[in-house]
C-alpha cells in the first residue's frame, strides 16, 4: 500500500511542480508585484494565444515543415556518414575531428551566412536544421555501431554471414537505442534551429512572427509563441518516444524486469 501511494506521488510530482510554477507566475503578475510590460499575466498570454490562433497555426506549419525536412535530411545524412565511418576506419579517424569542430561553431553565427548563400527561402532554414541535427545523431549512431558485441559478430560470421548480415542482425539493432537518444536531442534542436534561422531573415514562420511581436512590444504574444514553440518540441519528442517504444518492444520488457 505504502509503496503504491509513493509511486503515485512520484508520478504526480512533475505536474505538481508545473502547477506551482504557474501559480507563482499568476500571483506575481496578477497581484501587481511585477509590472505587466515586463511579465504579462498567464491569462493575458492565453488570451493572446486564442486571439492569434489562426496566425500561429499558419506560421507553425511553415516552421514545422522546415524542421521536419531538416531533421529527416539530418537523419539520412547521419546514417550515411556514420555507416561509412564505421565501415572504413580511416574515414573515422579523418572526419571525427571535423564533425566535432562543426559543432563548436555557434548556430547564430552561421545563420546569416546561410541566408547570404541560399537566399530568403526555406533552403537556408533547412540547411541550418540539418547542420544542428545531424551531429548528435551521427555520434550516437557511431557509438551504437561500436558498442556491438564482438562475440555476437563472430557468431554471425560462424554462421557464414558477411558484412551486410553483421550490419543487419548485430550492428543496426545494437545502435538503435543510441540512435533514439540522439534523435530526441536533435528533435528539440530542429525546432529551435528553424526558429533561430527565421529570426535572421525570412517572410514566414514562428521566428518571423516572434521578431514582429517583439518589435511591437506585444509581450503577451511573445510569451504565447515562446510557450507554443516549446510545446511543439515536446510533442515532437513524444512522437519520437512512441516510435522508439514501437520499434524496440524488448526495451520495455527489460525495464519491467529490472523493477
Amino acid at each position: 500500500m505504502i509503496k503504491k501511494s509513493r509511486s503515485t506521488i512520484f508520478k504526480l510530482a512533475p505536474f505538481i511542480s508545473l502547477i506551482t510554477v504557474f501559480l507563482i507566475w499568476l500571483i506575481l503578475s496578477e497581484g501587481g508585484v511585477i509590472a505587466d510590460y515586463m511579465l504579462p499575466s498567464p491569462i493575458a498570454v492565453v488570451k493572446a494565444f486564442i486571439a492569434d490562433f489562426d496566425t500561429l497555426m499558419k506560421q507553425a506549419s511553415v516552421t514545422l515543415t522546415e524542421a521536419l525536412y531538416g531533421l529527416c535530411t539530418g537523419i539520412a545524412l547521419a546514417f550515411f556518414i556514420s555507416i561509412l565511418m564505421d565501415r572504413f576506419e580511416f574515414l573515422y579517424k579523418a572526419f571525427y575531428p571535423i564533425l566535432v569542430i562543426t559543432q563548436t561553431i555557434p548556430t547564430i553565427a552561421i545563420a546569416p551566412l546561410l541566408v547570404l548563400w541560399l537566399g530568403f527561402s526555406m533552403a537556408p532554414k533547412i540547411a541550418l536544421v540539418v547542420i544542428t541535427t545531424f551531429f548528435p545523431i551521427t555520434i550516437s549512431l557511431l557509438d551504437g555501431f561500436k558498442s556491438a558485441d564482438k562475440d555476437a559478430i563472430n557468431l554471425i560470421r560462424s554462421m557464414g554471414g558477411g558484412k551486410l548480415q553483421i550490419f543487419h542482425y548485430i550492428k543496426l539493432p545494437s545502435a538503435l537505442p543510441h540512435f533514439f537518444s540522439g534523435l530526441k536531442v536533435s528533435a528539440s534542436y530542429a525546432i529551435v534551429g528553424a526558429v533561430i534561422s527565421e529570426w535572421l531573415g525570412g517572410f514566414e514562420g514562428l521566428g518571423v512572427y516572434m521578431t514582429r511581436v517583439k518589435k511591437a512590444y506585444a509581450f503577451d504574444k511573445m510569451f504565447a509563441v515562446i510557450i507554443f514553440v516549446s510545446v511543439l518540441s515536446l510533442v515532437l519528442m513524444a512522437i519520437i518516444n512512441l516510435v522508439k517504444n514501437l520499434s524496440m518492444p524488448y526495451m520495455k520488457i527489460e525495464e519491467q524486469n529490472k523493477n
Binding site: D149, D151, A152, L155, I156, R157, S158, M159, G160, G161, Q165, Y169, I170, P173, L176, M248, Y250, E254
Partner: peptide, 29 residues
C-alpha cells in the same frame, strides 16, 4: 567460417529478438 556451428559460455542471445527468432537466426543466415 560457416561450416561448423559453435556455442560459447556467453549465450549470445540477441536481446532485441524473441527466443524463436534468435533460434531461427542460423536457419536464415
Amino acid at each position: 567460417p560457416g561450416n561448423i556451428s559453435y556455442m560459447l559460455q556467453k549465450d549470445l542471445l540477441l536481446p532485441y529478438y524473441t527466443v524463436l527468432d534468435n533460434v531461427c537466426l542460423s536457419l536464415v543466415i
